[in-house]
């Protein structure tokens, strides 16, 4: 700024150019900071030297073995199996929670009934409790339902990830609120039932929010590791990716597995990143829809 005022002859123009370059330099520095950790993990995933301690930013030699190890060395940490587990759990979670969230938000947005306001208030209050406070209790409930052992563990995880999702209806409700009610009324005058207005009018108009809901619920099992850890405990057969990656950084594994951890992190991030970038537009629309409502 002071530089600009020292050149009063060409005044505003120089000032503008200086401000602009400063802005761009700052943006570049910030962008660098934001991308750096991601860039570093990609580099690490191709690093040939083992272990977590390195003295150079760039690897001394590059290799593909870290990725190979993830898929071939399955004796201690079976990454392909974890990937498969998580994928299956994510698909079921995604289907159930999408249905739950859309159903609840449609009802809250479009239908009027006695329990509507109380339900919305209860949902708000429940949101204030630490989500994980009930985890111990959830575990005992699953145990009482005989779902805490063996092959029921994946089912239990799906249930845990999807059962309570109906509470998170606010974003989708906000979006539904922005769809003109006149459309529903017109359909009802034409003799459509409520069910038909929901499936034939509202749903086709709500692609952004449906994509957003599918995406967020699909991501939940990949991101969560707390519930998965409590429910799987030591049963390595049912580990999800996040527990596996967490394990790789534990003291006994870190020396051998650090670079493979980076490779695993890259592999998990790629599909999610692609999905996210493809649907970013919908994401923003979905979220800002909530603000309007």
């Amino acid at each position: 700024m002071s530089k600009a005022s020292s050149a009063p002859v060409t005044g505003a123009k120089i000032r503008k150019i200086v401000t602009n370059s400063i802005v761009h330099v700052i943006l570049a520095i910030l962008a660098f900071i934001w991308v750096l950790p991601i860039f570093w993990v990609v580099l690490t995933s191709f690093r040939a030297e083992k272990g977590s301690y390195v003295t150079t930013f760039f690897p001394q030699s590059y290799t593909f073995n870290n990725y190979k190890k993830l898929f071939t060395d399955t004796t201690i940490l079976n990454f392909p199996l974890m990937f498969k587990n998580t994928f299956v759990i994510a698909i079921f979670t995604c289907i159930i929670s999408t249905i739950f969230v859309l159903s609840v938000s449609y009802c809250m947005s479009r239908m009027r009934f006695k329990m509507r306001k109380p339900f919305m208030n209860v949902a708000m209050i429940l949101g204030l409790f630490p989500g994980f406070m009930s985890m111990v209790a959830v575990y005992y409930i699953l145990k009482a339902l005989n779902m805490s052992e063996g092959s029921m563990i994946p089912v239990a995880l799906v249930v845990v990830f999807s059962a309570g999702t109906g509470i998170g209806f606010q974003v989708a409700k906000g979006f539904f609120d922005t769809i003109p009610k006149a459309l529903d009324e017109a359909a009802i005058i034409d003799g459509a039932t409520r069910w038909q207005t929901f499936t034939k009018v509202t749903v086709p108009l709500s692609k952004p929010i449906i994509v957003y809901t599918i995406l967020t619920s699909f991501m939940a099992p990949w991101i969560d590791f707390l519930f998965a850890k409590v429910i799987c405990r030591a049963d390595a057969k049912y580990f999800t990716v996040s527990i596996g990656l967490w394990k790789m950084l534990e003291k006994e594994y870190i020396d051998n597995w650090y670079t493979s951890f980076a490779a695993g992190a890259v592999l998990v991030s790629i599909p999610i990143a692609i999905l996210f970038l493809l649907t970013q537009k919908f994401y923003v629309e979905g979220v800002s829809g909530a603000v309007k409502g």
């Binding site: 991308v35 991601i38 991101i223 590791f225 967490w246 951890f261 992190a265 991030s269 996210f276």
Partner: peptide
């Protein structure tokens, strides 16, 4: 900036 959202949070935090 948005790229960092696309990386699962626990991964970037562990990194």
């Amino acid at each position: 900036f948005v790229l960092s959202i696309a990386v699962p949070q626990f991964v970037s935090l562990l990194i």
